[in-house]
Every structure is written in C-alpha cells, then in structure tokens.
C-alpha cells in the first residue's frame, strides 16, 4: 500500500529525517512511535506532500507520489488528519465535511459517505449546523477524521488523535478507528504519544529515533520489548 524508501526531509537548513524506510500493507494498522522531535509528524507531512521530500522514494499503491502537490495525493486516496486537527473553525460542521469531499464528483456517493461518517460519529450529525470552532476537542477530532473519510480514502494517516482529548473520548475515538479499519478495510498509519494504546490496536510498529527508524516489529513484540517499554510505554 505505502512504501517509504530512504526518505530524507526537513525544515529550512535542518534535516529532520535521515533516510527512513518502512511500509504499510493493505488493511493494516501501523504505529510510528518515538519521542517528541523524533520526526513522526515530519514523516506524515512529507508523505502527504505538505513538505518536500529531499531524497528517497514514497510509493503509494505502487505509484511514486514524492513531491506531488498535496491535493493530488489526496485525490489518489491518501488522507492525512494533521496534528492539532486543523478543522476549519470558521465553517460549520457540515461545510467542513463537504470540503472533505471536495474532489468527489458523484453526489449520491457523497451522500452515502456522509451517512457512513454520521453513523461512525453520531455526534457530528447532532452538531452539523454548528460552527466547528464551537466543538470540544474530542468533537473536533471526530470532525477531522470524518472530514478525511469524506474523501473516500484507501489509506489514512492520523497524527496524535488523542492529543488534548478527555480520556473517555479517546477510548471511543480509538474504537471508531479500529471499526473504520475493520469495516472499510482502510489501511491506517498512526502517530500517537499514547504508544501503549496505539500499539494495542496495531498489527505492527516502527520506532523512530531522531530521524531514523531503529526498530520495526509486530505490535505485540514491541509491547513486550523491555527497551521499548522503558523508553515509550512508561513501563519497566
């Protein structure tokens, strides 16, 4: 589904990723874990085209997408829910969702996707006419995910979906993430500070340390790995 090969990227004069390689297979949930500043968000931003890939290769469904403009990458079926959610707080919930379907032409398909999104996040239906800026953090996260789903992606990247959200809502959002993956067969790449939670719903994980992938393994063995537990899972 997604193959990243020897990717380097950064900001200004600083290189944040020093040639990372990993992949995500169809139908899989994969977590990127790592400390703050390890390059997790940078990785997602390079994949979705928000920042340039300086070298290396990014392939999506076998096609090279490195340095395509972001709106074309979305059009290929790769959605990115950015850190901080970035909902359009000046737009209503419904307008946000409609913008998610910007590239969709088929009105009937849009309506049916909208039904699915409301089915996954009923809260959004209740608030459809409300300005997105008035939603709680958890509701904004639902909107950000729902908005991404409106583009009917085949692959979804989620950056810190639990950040700043009440614990009860985090649980429910993760349940919905698993449900989206299971019901729609959507492959998911997850970046999450709560690595414990993220690895529990994932099949595999990649550990990112200061711009390099240091370990790739099935989620279960990462959860059991003493070094990983000590560094990222708050365990011993």
């Amino acid at each position: 589904m997604l193959e990243v090969v020897q990717l380097t990227a950064g900001y200004g004069g600083i290189e944040a990723l020093h040639g990372i390689s990993f992949d995500v297979r169809p139908g899989e949930i994969v977590t990127l874990i790592g400390a703050n500043g390890a390059g997790k968000s940078t990785t997602l931003r390079a994949i979705s085209g928000l920042i340039r890939a300086r070298s290396g290769e990014i392939r999506f469904k076998g096609r090279s997408i490195a340095n395509l403009p972001p709106h074309e990458i979305v059009g290929l079926g790769l959605a990115h829910v950015p850190e901080g959610r970035m909902v359009f707080s000046n737009l209503t919930v419904m307008e946000n969702l409609r913008m998610g379907a910007y590239l969709q032409r088929d009105k009937a398909a849009i309506a049916s996707t909208l039904g699915q999104v409301f089915d996954i996040f009923p809260r959004l239906r209740e608030r459809e006419r409300q300005s997105a800026g008035t939603l709680s953090g958890g509701e904004q996260q639902m909107l950000a995910i729902g908005r991404a789903l409106m583009g009917r992606p085949r692959f979804l990247m989620l950056d810190e979906p639990s950040l700043g959200i009440a614990p009860l809502l985090v649980k429910s959002i993760f349940e919905q993430i698993v449900r989206i993956n299971r019901d729609q067969g959507l492959a998911i790449l997850l970046v999450e500070q709560n690595a414990n939670l993220a690895l529990r719903v994932s099949q595999r994980g990649h550990v990112l340390e200061t711009g390099r992938i240091t370990l790739s393994a099935p989620a279960g063995s990462l959860l059991a790995d003493p070094a990983v537990r000590k560094a990222y899972l708050g365990g011993h």
Partner: peptide
C-alpha cells in the same frame, strides 16, 4: 457555493485546505 466555501477554508488554513484536496 463550493468554491466560496473553499475560499473560506483556504483563508482559515492553507495546509488543511490542501489536505482536503482543495487546489489552493
């Protein structure tokens, strides 16, 4: 209109708009 809503979306956040597939 859709293009007007997209204008407001771009005005709010270019990157988020681009991630929706909006050709900013």
């Amino acid at each position: 209109t859709k293009v007007g809503t997209a204008m407001r979306a771009v005005a709010h956040n270019h990157q988020a708009a681009a991630l929706m597939g909006i050709p900013t």
